[in-house]
Amino acid sequence: MDRLLHLDRTLDELDPPRWTAPAVDATHLVHKVHELRSLALSELRPADLRVLITQRVALPHVLPLAVRLLLQDPLLDAHFYEGDLLLAAVAAPAPAWAVCPDLAARLRAVIASLPEASVADLPRGAAEELTRFVARPDTPS
């Protein structure tokens, strides 16, 4: 988790180029993502990580932060429901995971150890998404 050494830096610093300010009439989501890019990584909350991951922003920097949380609490409720951060993370494209295969392997092990009852409580289709992630090879095809 070498990327965690930069917790005092922002995504604008770590994932150049800096983004220009969004248009005044941009959506709330666009404004939110721009705002999150200007926060130090240490300030990003689970809900922020979920937003950044689902929007596929700076994944090499954001996924390690999410995995750090998910290794401790795989079904963490990051705003919407238990497991929402986990489902966002496993939906990240395979090339994003290719830069941190060790983290992907650790997350796969955690997912594989989840009790069936816990997975059954997740939204429809979640069990299949988790199964696909666990079965995914370490390198993109």
Score class of each variant (00 low, 15 high):
S42D: 11
L63A: 06
R136Q: 14
C100D: 09
P95R: 03
M1W: 10
L122D: 10
R50W: 03
V90C: 06
L114H: 12
A126S: 14
A135D: 11
A89D: 13
L41D: 11
H6Q: 08
E13T: 06
P140Q: 02
D73M: 08
L86M: 11
R18H: 02
R132P: 00
R108F: 03
A91P: 02
R18K: 02
E129G: 08
V110G: 05
P17W: 03
P137D: 06
I111C: 15
R37T: 09
I111K: 13
L49D: 07
D2G: 15
A23K: 11
A26Y: 06
L65T: 05
D12K: 00
P64C: 04
L7R: 14
E13G: 05
T10R: 08
R56P: 01
R132D: 15
D102H: 10
S38R: 12
L36K: 02
P93R: 13
L11W: 04
T20C: 00
D2I: 07
C100W: 04
V90A: 03
P95V: 09
L4W: 00
P123M: 03
A40D: 10
L4Y: 00
D102L: 02
D25W: 11
P16D: 11
I111H: 14
A98E: 09
P46A: 15
L11E: 08
L59P: 06
R132E: 15
A47M: 03
E129M: 14
E35T: 13
A105P: 00
E82L: 06
H28N: 09
L86G: 04
L4E: 10
D8Y: 09
L29M: 15
A26P: 10
E82G: 04
V62G: 07
D121H: 08
R9Y: 01
D2E: 04
V99G: 04
P93F: 08
V119T: 14
P46L: 07
L69K: 14
